[in-house]
Design a protein around this nucleic acid. Structure first.
Lengths: 337, 337
DNA sequence: CTGTTAGCGCGTTCAC
DNA sequence: GTGAACGCGCTAACAG
């Protein structure tokens, strides 16, 4: 392969502007420390020869990449993209960019990805969910960079910082809401709790609300499935079939709930009279469904913003006094329950 | 700020394994060229001292970052995340990672972002939509890296490669479908066509279908709004109010269509008898709505995969013989129209 | 405010 | 198959 280094370098700009190489560097990184006149000359030279700085070289020299790595379970899930979007926005303001990856579904996959990401020397790292292997934790700690974990507030041993809400508390609150409205036989639909800690927490919250009132949870009320509209519809039917007298279903995701509401329409089940439905996420559709969906609102954009701020503050030398941030949640009472 | 270079470097591994630095480098990059025994020794040393290669330094030396930059209008839009997800998947297989950014809504913003991204020396770039300023195009061309544009097949002057479907053809096909089913007074809901070329193309396709049959499009049938469930509901009502005898509405996005279907439920309008509804995207919800939604399917994951392949092939020295790929579309006929 | 000097950590020649 | 030298393009520290 031929070596083609036809790149315009900083030195070329310097020569053209008749200044030292360092001055060019300063114009780019610390504009305040350069005389206005020279600055203009340098900027013009940059324009004229179409110089594009090489951040790779800069990063090597300064030991700072201005890159934040972000790892989510699946990029495709809109729930995460909202967080990522807000984070990217916040970061860009300070010249940082986002290296994005999906952790996959096993700890091993995640470990591999993180190892490769760390090799790129990001200045910080955000990671949503996932169960980290001991090696992963060790790697992350050794890296020494600010790290924000998200997905759930309750992390046995946070690696560094945490920004999230409590899945347990949110699910418990919604379940309590349903119990207060005198629903007693309540179904619960979530993801496989063995594979997903957040699902487990939501299910635990569901059970806790019953326990507090001294009520029992019938095992038949719990159903685990993968996320989707059709899956929500199927779950509703399955639950009603195996649980005579079911009064309500709490879907730990609005997509399921919306699918279930369609099924009610198809079957002529009246909501909430025949069956009450509650969701989780306050997805954009929740306020539009027929009937409108009672759900739990989580500020996902806020998670992204706060995470970015935490990392940036640390990078800017600030001390983060509160390394665990609870962004909270809110019960949105609408028509369906 | 204190300088803490406590990093484990390649030379440390080399010393521990009692080999030269170059040998370590080879174990990492060209494992085949190292004797099995030495390789094992090196790998073990890497494990023992927890060495994480520094790709920043590697990139500078090799002039290859193994990073692909991806720019989409908004990360939050699920429509794009599907593409990005597939692309990331494909890229990771060959050791590439994704630098993600949203282009914002003006050509200037996009230009700024691209300039900053190029400074990171990505090996390739993917960009969805956007109207590039002349400066942007010049920058991109000068960069010399493989570039894939997406969003619409019809690009006046492609910078390099294009992977997409034709918004024009897709919209024309759906409109023709509706006309063939004997709907004549058809509304069209899309984004602001002045701000978004893809919207303009869809609207053009809509009009073209009428023209081919020698039919007129009443200006009152066209409505532009921002994307959302509620916006879809509102658009439907507005169109019916101002257009007596409206028989169908083609929503250039399933989210609008789904919102409109809810409105029909609320008002007791029967679909497709009172009003037929068609969408665009084949969003996951389309097969579940009541009634199910007739729509246009676009393979967004395919766009991501093909784009990645094109870039990778080029990077691997291959010649890309077909730099403009049409991934096509498909009319999915369901109950709503 | 500006220039000089010394690396950053690794890949890529070459010899051996 | 392995090691020594050199350089990638830029920034940090210091001096002037």
């Amino acid at each position: 392969m031929e070596k083609t280094r036809d790149q315009v370098r900083m030195i070329d700009v310097a020569r053209r502007a008749k200044v030292g190489l360092v001055t060019v560097s300063r114009v780019l990184n610390e504009p305040g420390k350069v005389a206005e006149e020279t600055r203009q000359r340098v900027l013009q030279a940059i324009q004229e020869i179409g110089y594009v700085p090489n951040l790779v070289a800069g990063s090597l020299a300064s030991n700072r990449t201005h890159v934040i790595a972000a790892i989510v379970p699946t990029i495709g899930n809109p729930v995460f993209s909202e967080t990522i979007d807000a984070m990217a926005q916040e970061l860009r303001g300070e010249g940082y960019h986002l290296l994005l990856g999906n952790g996959g579904h096993s700890g091993r996959e995640e470990e591999g990805l993180i190892a490769k990401f760390l090799a790129r020397r990001p200045d910080g790292l955000f990671i949503h969910g996932g169960r980290h292997t001991p090696e992963t934790c060790a790697m992350l700690r050794r890296s020494g960079i600010p790290i924000v974990e998200s997905g759930d507030l309750r992390r046995p041993e946070p690696i560094d910082m945490v920004v999230s809400y409590s899945n347990f508390a949110a699910a418990e609150a919604m379940t309590t809401y349903l119990l207060e409205r005198n629903y007693r036989r309540i179904g619960f639909v979530g993801r496989a709790s063995k594979e997903n800690d957040r699902s487990l927490e939501r299910q635990r919250g569901f059970r806790a609300a019953f326990e507090r009132l001294g009520l029992e949870v019938d095992p038949r009320w719990i159903l685990e499935t993968s996320l989707g509209y059709r899956e929500g519809a199927e779950a509703l039917v399955a639950l009603r079939e195996r649980t005579p007298g079911l009064e309500a279903v709490f879907f730990a995701g609005d997509v399921w709930a919306a699918g279930a509401l369609y099924e009610c329409l198809r079957r002529g089940w009246s909501v909430p009279t025949d069956i009450a439905i509650a969701g989780f996420d306050d997805h954009a559709v929740a306020s539009q469904t027929v009937p409108t969906l009672t759900t739990v609102r989580v500020l996902r954009g806020e998670i992204g913003r706060r995470s970015a701020r935490l990392i940036l503050d640390r990078l800017n030398g600030g001390t983060v006094d509160e390394p665990i941030i609870d962004v909270g949640f809110e019960i949105i009472a609408r028509e369906s329950a």
